[in-house]
Design a binder for these strands. Sequence first.
DNA 1: CGCTGAATAT
DNA 2: AATATTCAGC
Length: 557
Amino acid sequence: MVCTANDLQEWKDFPKGLRVLLLDDDTTSAAEIRSKLEEMDYIVSTFCNENEALSAISSKPESFHVAIVEVSTGNNGSFKFLETAKDLPTIMISSIHCLSTMMKCIALGAVEFLRKPLSEDKLRNIWQHVVHKAFNAGGSVLPESLKPVKESVASMLQLQMENEEPRNESSAETLNVSNVHENDHMQSAGTDKYPAPSTPQLKQGGRSLDDGDCLDQTNCSTEKESGEQDGESKSVETTCGTSVAEVTAQVSPPQGLGESVIKEEDDSADGCKSESNMSPHPQNKDSLSEFGGDARNPRKASGVHSPCGTRANRKKMKVDWTPELHKKFVQAVEQLGVDQAIPSRILELMKVEGLTRHNVASHLQKYRMHRRHILPKEDDRRWPHQRDPMQRNYYPQKPVMAFPPYHSSHTLPAAQLYPVWGQPSSHPAQMWSTPGYHTWQPAESWIWKPYPGMNADAWGCPVMTPTHTPCSSFPQNPSGFDHNNGSGIYNTGIPQSPIDLYPAEELIDRVVKEAISKPWMPLPLGLKPPATESVLAELSRQGISTIPPHINTPRPY
DNA sequence: CGCTGAATAT
DNA sequence: AATATTCAGC
């Protein structure tokens, strides 16, 4: 405002002649600063009274390019200047370093907060704020990513003001505690980026301000990496994301990012976080290679891919169990047999580079928990012992629900038989298909009790009445994947065997046995009697050619 | 010691 | 809620 981009472009010996408004009621320090500034060819106007300074601005707005305002315990609470001189890039200075005060200044629009004494370096670079203002006047939109920061700062400040007076030194502590989790933003994004991005140099100035204070400490403590830390220092921060452009660039791209599988733990103030996530991971479902590549392997993840990478390598990776990965996991488990699936073997079968036994173990634990939840009691006493151990190696116990007939299930490739999540779901929660699990509730609670070994046709399908209870919907997609994210693999009316819904085989056997031994019993609710022909056909298919006469006799009761 | 699985921690 | 980490048995 005060100084436009055009002005600057014509300004040959910039920043020489830049007009600085200096407001500091400490005449000694004011004189000191003034002399330093003048040495650098800045033109300084000193004020020791806020109102005077303000009136000077209002009467001759064009008189200043940048302001340096002292925040002392005396005027600490007012911030009047800051609020009034919105258009003038204002640098707050103070000998006290209260975080809440700093925060407030920045939030109110100060471009920077410097702690006294002001070194020449700090002063020398104040022109950058003028340039920034000149070239970024108005127009900038708060990046989406920074909104949370803004909000938290805002609420924090509000809290501050409510609980205690701004000047309160101890407030810094309170403030810090409540914001530990966002320190990273605070430092890089909040303090520098949101109000007015600083240049590296300026940033350093700003940083020195924090020293000894909570901010840095917190950051360090976050970095509690045990053994393997190399000489990496945080100096990178000066390199990383300091300009608005950079910030924006780093922040927006991650959107397109489908699902990075093993990503760096986003950790403290390293503005590189988004960068790491940015690495393109075209979601080639299934490709194992995908996991072997770049950032997935902790060891391989060395910061090759990002300027800030160097410091990022060390970070522990977090495994993202994408549907693909989970699928592999499930297939491995199946291949082994649920009862014999142990982390190490699963890991072998999965062949996913970078994945550790621990990762698998953890996932397995969750997997088992889900199953347990889904298949209570019955689950315990079945599968084991029931089949030849050797057969387990071939997609065994795939409980089939009224389809396909068991005799054919062993001939189908697992992938086909148990389509798992048809497509990678963007919603991991669906992997466990909670809703569909009801389908496999124990017989006691599930009225739809298909009899394995029989074709759905033979036994009839559930009566599908739109108005039926939830249970009336055909369990063709027990896994709850009907929505199937438009992948094209959706319910065709043919029941798909959900890969991870393995109804207790024992349960099925029991039900079948029971049904066979008590043919007079009514069919489970939701089923309609099969057509006679179907039954006959099925029976003959099973080698039963004669029908016991009593089958058609009236029920014993 | 290394593995597993359950309990905790983050 | 999802993963990681820790811990007690084996």
